[in-house]
Nucleic acid binder design. Structure first.
Lengths: 240, 240
DNA sequence: CGATACCTTGACCACTTTCAACGTCCGTGG
DNA sequence: CCACGGACGTTGAAAGTGGTCAAGGTATCG
């Protein structure tokens, strides 16, 4: 891993401060984190971690999007997670990653060297509680995704995916951008996330477009003209 | 939940002692657990927990098999986990289950009332460490299953499933029963676990039988005549 | 012994994939 | 500045895997 080291910004001004692993830390705890953190950035397409590799750091995503992927010997790949800003890479007590981590866009990470971070964990309940919470959220998300992968149709998968983008984006930028969105992934990456082929993804997006549910500005950015219809298609029950 | 309360057995003689949530506890810690535990049992097919329900207990599976399932409005269901002996139900800091828990066979649980258990967690690092470990193992398993659901063929799914049964059974009964196994689930349940229909499951099992890889004694019990071939079909790399 | 739940097998069908061609955007270099 | 090349995306046609529907088989339990 040879990413450039950027100038850090102060934790107090960090855009992901309220949701990241450090969200419960204040004062002295934050000062320690401040001291052991290093920003690193990766270009779109760069591999951040290799499957089976031993991690020398843990990190929060500050900006950009990264993917967690598993690959079969013959090249079929399945994404098993999507890392958006504030998401965390690394697990207490596990030094190997069980999947590839790849930057889907330019990515900036807030990295902590693993050893100091783990030592800090032992004496900082705020941190370890939050980490457990994050892991359990991921477990819930993984199980929802299992339902999608195992039982949903292509149409439902795409609708669910976009519905998720709406939900996540309404969480972060609380700017009232009701419906203008950007696909964080290429068609092929979306396909690997949803267990489809890129052609099927393309066709289903076209279908949603021709049904007047989505309107594309360009390949990546679009508006949701009919969020209700989209959600109905997704097959999920009413939003929580 | 109205399961009969069985006479407890002593923790020291518990068959799942070495792998369950209590595996790191000794002496005084074990004495406390001993005091707050209650055995409950469920008949095959009984629902142990309903999705969205608030849990009043957490538990370890002592014997039998239970399933974790999610269901779409129209009835399609996907299993998101399989609970075998020593597996744990319940999460620190979450009082609702996000899926249905159903007894696939007669099941005996070692139950702890949630409040006392959570209090104990706070002062028993052995217990909470083990719980985090268990949650992370489940996360890994969920991600492996995502690869299966999203990218594997019916044939590969069935082979992976049986391969998993071999691995799990070699863990527990270290009796040298190289190859005699029992399907813990009905065809329909297997289908819901693998994201298939029961007919496809049946056909694929028949195929493995006619290829001389499996040999059935009856509907549920069989021998693996060619574990190597089975594993090759599964699409996974060499066993860890 | 019959009822019922579970399983198997066949025939057909549909959805998604596969294969292929073409289109669009964008950066690079002539 | 435009032309070329490559990455990315769209669309069509054909093929194939797994699903659906249906009939019949087998085991188990009263």
């Amino acid at each position: 891993m040879n990413a450039p080291v950027l100038s850090n910004i102060k934790c107090g001004e960090c855009p992901i401060r309220h949701r990241a692993v450090c969200s419960r830390c204040e004062g002295a705890e934050l000062d320690i984190l401040e001291k052991i953190k290093v920003y690193r950035s990766f270009k779109a397409g760069e591999q951040i971690l290799w499957r089976g590799e031993s991690m020398d750091f843990v990190a929060s995503v500050v900006s950009g999007v990264a993917t967690l992927g598993k690959t079969l010997e013959d090249g079929r790949t399945q994404m098993v997670g999507l890392l958006l800003p504030s998401d965390f890479i690394g697990r207490p007590g596990r030094d190997r990653v069980e999947f590839d981590v790849i930057a889907a866009s330019d990515v900036t990470l807030c990295c902590f060297d693993r050893k100091p971070f783990e030592n800090l964990l032992l004496v900082t309940p705020h941190l370890s509680e939050r980490l457990v919470e994050i892991a359990l959220d991921e477990l819930d998300a993984a199980r929802d995704w299992m339902l999608l992968l195992g039982r949903k149709t292509a149409r439902e998968k795409i609708a669910t995916f976009i519905d998720m983008l709406i939900r996540r984006s309404s969480l972060e930028g609380s700017t009232a951008q009701n419906d203008a969105l950007t696909l964080p992934l290429s068609r092929e990456e979306i396909a690997n996330y949803l267990g489809l082929t890129l052609e099927t993804v393309s066709r289903q997006l076209s279908a949603l477009k021709s049904q007047g549910i989505l309107q594309f500005k360009d390949r990546r950015s679009f508006e949701v003209l009919n969020p209700k219809a989209l959600h109905d298609i997704s097959g999920d029950d009413a939003p929580r």
